[in-house]
Simulated assay, not measured.
Amino acid sequence: MAVRELSGVTKRHGARSVLRGVDLDVPAGAAVGILGANGSGKSTLLRILAGISRPSGGTVSGRPRIGYVPDRFPARQRMSARAYLRHLGRIGGLSTVDATARADGWLDRFALAGGPDTPLRDLSKGNAQKVGIAQALLCDPELLVLDEPWSGLDPDSRGVLTEVIGEVAAAGTAVVFTDHRPEAVRALATRSHRLADGRLEPLEAEVETCRIVLCDGESVDWAAQPGVQAVRPGHLDVTLVVTVEARESLLLKAIQQGCAVLSVASR
């Protein structure tokens, strides 16, 4: 069952279309990854998912409890990290004791430099991001919305965040995150999408390929052979870009046709 669903969602800023007919359902326990370049509309889409922004058209359904990490966490405040999180926890319905314990637990897990009593305005970008992630997790959200959440984090904290996303999704929380790295999206997401030109499409699995260089032999219509993705004729040779899965059968065919195999290399 989807905890949040977008149907035909559009967003315009003046005459510019940022989102065009976006459909997205986010089931409980899913980790939905959205890949996109800077300026592709990822942040706009996530603000709509989080209920921070309204779409220009289409519908948004579902009323889950939401934890949201924006692309830039506003940390220019005098409160300490602990006091800030305790305050948000109280607003979210937690007791002072519970809010403080949860705040300290998350800050300890992400190893906040300077400790929980450090004023927010004194934190580095990476440590401010840790507080931003902690506030989103504080009240056990049913939908966790993360905009480029690894940005600014040190390597250890990136690993912790990846672990946390897996843990909360396994516990039933729906997670939506954005990133600009295809490998990160594919590695963590149970559902992967690409946002480009305002349209959201499934992110196709990347097919591993290799390059085979041949010469001589009988004439073969290599472009018609299964697994051949590209044919690049040279002066005395021909280069084939083929899927790794089809490599052995294509090499066998080349040898049977009397071709000399000059090289085989991964792309």
Rank of each mutant, 00 (worst) to 15 (best):
A2Q: 10
A2Y: 07
E5N: 01
L6E: 00
L6G: 05
R12L: 14
G14V: 12
G14L: 00
A15R: 11
R16N: 05
L19Y: 04
V22F: 01
D23N: 09
L24E: 06
D25K: 06
V26C: 04
V26N: 08
G29M: 04
G29Q: 05
A30S: 11
V32N: 02
I34A: 02
A37L: 08
S40K: 03
K42Y: 13
R47P: 01
I52H: 07
I52C: 05
T59P: 05
P64L: 11
I66S: 05
V69F: 03
D71R: 15
D71W: 04
R72P: 03
F73Y: 10
R76L: 12
Q77Y: 06
M79G: 09
S80N: 01
A83F: 03
A83H: 11
G89W: 01
R90C: 13
G92C: 08
L94C: 10
L94R: 00
V97W: 02
T100Y: 06
A101C: 11
A103K: 09
G105M: 03
W106G: 13
L107K: 07
R109W: 06
F110P: 14
A113R: 09
D117T: 14
T118M: 12
T118W: 11
L123H: 01
L123F: 13
G126T: 02
N127Q: 15
A134F: 02
Q135N: 06
P141K: 03
E142N: 07
V145I: 12
P149G: 01
P149E: 08
G152M: 08
D154P: 10
D156I: 05
S157C: 12
R158S: 15
I165W: 07
I165P: 08
I165Q: 06
G166T: 05
E167F: 12
T173K: 06
T173P: 05
A174E: 07
T178H: 03
L188Q: 13
L188A: 01
A189E: 04
S192M: 12
H193N: 02
R194D: 14
R194C: 07
A196W: 11
D197G: 10
G198I: 15
R199Y: 00
R199T: 15
L200Y: 02
E204C: 06
E206P: 00
E206A: 13
E206H: 14
V207I: 15
V207S: 06
V207E: 05
E208H: 11
E208M: 12
E208R: 14
C210T: 09
R211W: 10
R211I: 11
C215L: 15
A224L: 04
G227S: 07
V231L: 07
H235K: 13
V238N: 09
L240K: 04
V241G: 03
V242Y: 05
T243Y: 00
V244A: 08
V244L: 10
E248V: 14
Q256F: 09
Q256T: 15
L262A: 10
L262P: 10
L262M: 07
A265I: 02
A265P: 15
R267P: 00
R267K: 10
